[in-house]
Structures are given as structure tokens and as C-alpha cells.
Design a protein around this nucleic acid. Structure first.
Ligand SMILES: [Mn+2]
Ligand SMILES: [Mn+2]
Ligand SMILES: [Zn+2]
Ligand SMILES: [Zn+2]
Lengths: 148, 148
DNA sequence: ATGTTAATTGCAAATCATTTGCAATGCATA
DNA sequence: TATGCATTGCAAATGATTTGCAATTAACAT
């Protein structure tokens, strides 16, 4: 890959990792590179499949995603099929957003709007709950799949 | 259990099952009885635990829930912990609703409001998707758990 | 009431995603 | 370069769910 891209990523990684006595390793760099190239959430197995053979063990990907999630570098999503998906969190973004998923071909649309924040507040007040968040995903049939 | 309750449930079951050459069996009746007694979603294991020993195999519960879901007698929910939960669908209801779950003690509050229907329409128009639905769950810390 | 037949069940083994133990390896810092 | 702790690969363990199959049973026609 291009050196400057590598450097850029590395320094960004360094920043966030060094503070927590975490190491910048080849597997972690490789995983972040994969996530960079995709705009939609990926499963661990998908990341593993994209990675050059022998580059990184699947168990390492699982461990890495947990770590990256805990340090807010990736956001975890659940499409209801029993498999976790992860997306890189962009600069100055909290990662919170939603998707519209085709139930036939699994195409994914990124959804910018986030409604329930308003409802969230109301819920928190009414229920006495604090730190209220939500998970929301939309499902439907995409234009291509509507034919049959 | 009381005879008339049994009859009531049995006839309701009969109605829905007979049409599809499905059988009214003891395990299915027992499972529905358990769901009747609970207002919040239950996992298959929870249903299994409540059932009298030897009443029904866990695999049978899994199979029954699939069937009951396919005939719209139960609604499946996903709280993001990798375990499916099911709730009985009441008469004249489509089962669609949401929850507010305490991330500390797992207490569940049923949420009546459903926002995203409006957003759903807009999404469908903008994207060309059809049959758009959504899954939405809220998470937070309940009053009891806020102490520490 | 009894027989026929297809649906259903229990049980064990198989799957699938995810986690974990542990010895070997590799980063960060002195 | 040496040291120490984080990290990795690999294999085995877990936990939820599914599945194959022979035995059982509900539904319905004798
Ligand atoms: Mn996304
Ligand atoms: Mn509910
Ligand atoms: Zn949102
Ligand atoms: Zn809703």
C-alpha cells in the first residue's frame, strides 16, 4: 500500500493505542485497512476472507474488534441474523446511525436520519432510566429484488 | 389448569393450526400457556426452564417457536445478546412494538410508542424499497441500578 | 373403536458464531 | 540489545440453534 497512507493510519492508530498501553500490530493495521475500504458494516468472517491468507487469525479478528469497539474506533451493528457487523467510526463522529437492509439480497443502505433521539428523551423522563440509547435497523425489499 | 381456560386456548389454537394441517400437541399447548403468563419476551431456555420437567424437549421449543412465528402467533425480538426472545401476539395486534432494557439488571419495559413508521414511509419513497419494516430497542440504566 | 398416514417429538449429533487457554511471538521502552 | 508485558495462532471449549432419524401421536377415514 502507499507509504503515506500507511503512515497516516499508523500515527492515528498510535495516538489512540499508545495511551492505553496497547500495541500497534500488523493484524490490527490490516483489519483497519479492510474497514477503511468498505462503507458498510462487515462481519468478522468477511474481514477474514478479504485479508491475505495467513495475515491474521480469525480469533485475533474477534479480539481486535472487541478492543476497537471498546476504544470507540469501530461501531458494532446487529442485523438480526446472529452475526455481529462492524463499521469504522469516522473522525468527529460517534458512529451512531442506522441501515436499510434488503431481506432478499442483503444490499445495505446507510441511513443518516436518526429519529428516536426525541423519543429517547421522553422515554428517559417517563421511565427514570438514564443513559438511554437505541438500536434501530430497517428492513425491506430493494428495487432490484422487487421483480420476483 | 382450569378446564374452560384450556378449552379457550385449545379452540383458538385449533382454528389457526387446522387450516395448515398442523397438529394441536401437548408441547405446543404448554408453550403457549407459558407465554400467556408472561408480559415480557422469553428466551427458549427460559420457556424450557419454566415448563414441568419432561413436558417438552428444548429442540421442540425451538421448532415450535419457528412455527408459531411463521403463523404470526408469536413475535420474535432481539435484545442484542445473541439470544432470541418471543412474546405472544395478542388478539387484533400485529405484535410490533419496542422495549427499554436495563443494561445492568435486564429489567424490561414495554414501549407502546412507535415512531419510525413515519420515517419508514419517507425511507421507502426515497430508496424505492418496499415492505419496509424496522426493529428498534432502547437500552439504558434503570432507577434501581443507578445507585452504583 | 381401530387403522392409516403424515406431522411431531425426543435424543443425540452437527452447525455456527464466538470465546478462551496457553505456549510462542512481537512491540515498546530502557 | 535486553526485558516485560501485550498479542497472536492454534486448538479446544462454549452457547445458541439446527438437524437426522427412529419412535410416537394427532387427525381423520374406515
Ligand atoms: Mn453504516
Ligand atoms: Mn414486548
Ligand atoms: Zn438513531
Ligand atoms: Zn416501531
Amino acid at each position: 500500500m502507499k507509504p503515506h497512507v500507511h503512515q497516516e493510519r499508523l500515527s492515528e492508530l498510535n495516538e489512540k493505542l499508545r495511551q492505553k498501553s496497547r500495541k500497534v500490530t500488523a493484524p490490527r493495521q490490516a483489519i483497519l485497512d479492510v474497514l477503511r475500504k468498505h462503507r458498510h458494516p462487515l462481519t468478522n468472517k468477511e474481514i477474514f476472507a478479504v485479508l491475505p491468507p495467513g495475515e491474521c487469525d480469525l480469533a485475533t479478528i474477534y479480539r481486535s474488534m472487541h478492543m476497537l469497539e471498546s476504544m470507540r474506533m469501530v461501531q458494532r451493528f446487529d442485523f438480526g441474523d446472529g452475526t455481529a457487523r462492524y463499521e469504522l467510526i469516522c473522525e468527529g463522529d460517534d458512529g451512531h446511525h442506522h441501515h436499510l437492509i434488503c431481506t432478499r439480497c442483503s444490499e445495505v443502505l446507510e441511513i443518516e436520519d436518526c429519529f428516536p433521539v426525541a423519543l429517547e428523551k421522553k422515554l428517559a423522563e417517563d421511565s427514570g432510566f438514564k443513559f438511554v440509547t437505541h438500536k434501530l435497523e430497517f428492513f425491506g425489499v430493494c428495487p432490484k429484488c422487487q421483480g420476483k
